[in-house]
């Protein structure tokens, strides 16, 4: 994947396919310790210990476990390539949390990419799902809660083109301010 945002989209899709109603996305950029951490936690159906051990194996995947594809092995490879790692915590009936650490300055680290577009599209395709996104850069942070947006939109959904456009613009400005400080 050319952008970390695409890995994030993949993780979010996993959560949605696991039946999650609430997904928390965290992006933490810690320039001081040279770490970039992505985490996606959900309240989906979760996996047992044996499954968790196997999801990083690309050859484990079969059609009947479509909610775990090649995505996690690709993410793990991307993290390993730049001195990081992937951790998965999961419990059946509780949910799953996937965290990926990257060396922020590593030359092989893919750029974060177009996260605003990614999230606008994810929300458009998953009505009824709540996404809470927190992004931290050093001491500053940004929080976006799709429920706050839904509360103001009433019957209008995230798949309305005007709303998708607003989400994209709102997050782009937020991220720009976050990176500028």
């Amino acid at each position: 994947m050319r952008e970390l945002a695409l890995h994030i989209l993949d993780l979010l899709q996993n959560s949605a396919e696991a039946g999650a109603l609430r997904v928390e996305l965290g992006v933490e950029e810690d320039p001081e310790n040279d770490i970039l951490r992505i985490s996606v936690g959900d309240d989906g159906r979760g996996m047992d210990e044996a499954t968790v051990r196997r999801v990083l194996d690309p050859f484990y995947t079969t059609r009947k476990t479509r909610h775990v594809g090649l995505g996690l092995p690709l993410l793990a490879a991307a993290a390993r390539r730049c001195g990081g790692k992937v951790e998965i915590e999961s419990a059946p009936g509780v949910g799953t949390k996937v965290s990926a650490d990257f060396r922020r300055s590593n030359i092989d680290r893919a750029p974060l990419g177009d996260l605003p577009q990614t999230l606008a599209i994810f929300l458009a395709g998953h009505p009824g799902l709540r996404l809470v996104y927190r992004h931290r850069v050093g001491p500053r942070d940004l929080t976006f809660d799709s429920d706050e947006v839904s509360a103001r939109l009433g019957a209008v959904g995230f798949d309305h083109p005007l709303v998708a456009d607003w989400v994209k613009g709102y997050l782009s400005e937020g991220l720009l301010n976050l990176q500028k400080g």
Binding site: M1, L9, G69, L70, G71, A120, A124, P161
Partner: peptide, 27 residues
């Protein structure tokens, strides 16, 4: 929008569809 779709550019595809529907007011 599986891993394969995402890797092949499905995000841009979906963005283009939403934008085009928006432009033509097709809600």
């Amino acid at each position: 929008m599986g891993t394969c779709g995402i890797a092949a550019g499905a995000r841009e595809t979906m963005a283009a569809i939403l934008a085009e529907l928006g432009k033509r007011n097709l809600t």
